[in-house]
Amino acid sequence: MTTTTKRSIQSNPISNGLRSLVYLLNGRWHKPAMQIFMVVIAFHLLEHLVQAYQLWGLGWPRPKCLGLLGLGFPWLMKSEWLHYGHALFMLLGFAVFRPSFVGRARLWWDIGFGLQFYHHFEHALLLGQAIIHENLFDSPVPISIGQIWFPRLELHLFYNFMILVPMLIAMYYHRFPPYQSKNV
């Protein structure tokens, strides 16, 4: 890399701004930023739990199981943009907060990150089908890979729990790092 190229990369205001933001989110703003991130994730999971309750507890037909948000805004819950936006939000959150996690916390954070990457891929696949109006496998609605075998409601509830578990373990180790003996 030439000196001119290095200088142009270092002086790029957008990349400098992003680096500064990541630094703040992993430094001074880390605790409130992580709290906001987790509140958004908790509300998303709550929506999936409400959908499951509407289906299995109340016996509603699947198309009517739209969660709390869907009761007021049914068109929003049927939008692939909303689901993709949340998947992207989570993926970016994993990437942005990654520098703060070290040791065992990093291992578990990376496991959650990998699972979220696949979850994001599934939502990108659904969004792509909705945009081009061409569904995979001649399905009448957009379909993800996992939906070949499992219904969408159950599949996304499963995905969210599979991502949440390593995320919570990572946050536990982040908050309470294991004691490292000096004699080891």
Rank of each mutant, 00 (worst) to 15 (best):
H120N: 14
P99Q: 00
L107M: 15
F113K: 05
P99H: 04
G112M: 02
S139T: 06
K78F: 09
Q129S: 10
I111E: 00
V141S: 14
P99A: 04
H86E: 07
L115H: 00
V96T: 11
F150V: 15
A124H: 07
L136Q: 03
I131H: 05
F137D: 06
G85S: 15
I111N: 00
H120G: 13
W109C: 03
I143K: 12
W149I: 13
A87F: 05
I131W: 09
Y118M: 13
L155A: 10
A87M: 02
G93P: 02
G114P: 02
L76C: 09
I131R: 08
H123N: 02
F101S: 06
G112Q: 01
R106G: 03
L125V: 08
P151D: 10
S144V: 06
M90I: 10
F89H: 05
I111F: 09
Y118P: 00
H83G: 02
F94N: 03
L125K: 04
G128V: 01
W75S: 11
F113Y: 14
L91M: 14
A95Y: 09
L88I: 12
V96A: 14
H123V: 01
L157I: 01
G85E: 06
H133S: 12
G72C: 09
S144P: 00
A87H: 02
R98E: 06
A124K: 02
L157H: 05
A105D: 00
F137K: 06
H86D: 06
I145G: 05
I111V: 15
F117C: 13
L157D: 10
V102R: 15
Q129W: 00
Y84C: 15
F121H: 11
R104H: 11
R104N: 14
H123M: 03
Q116H: 08
L92W: 10
F97L: 12
W108H: 07
W81G: 07
K78E: 10
F117V: 15
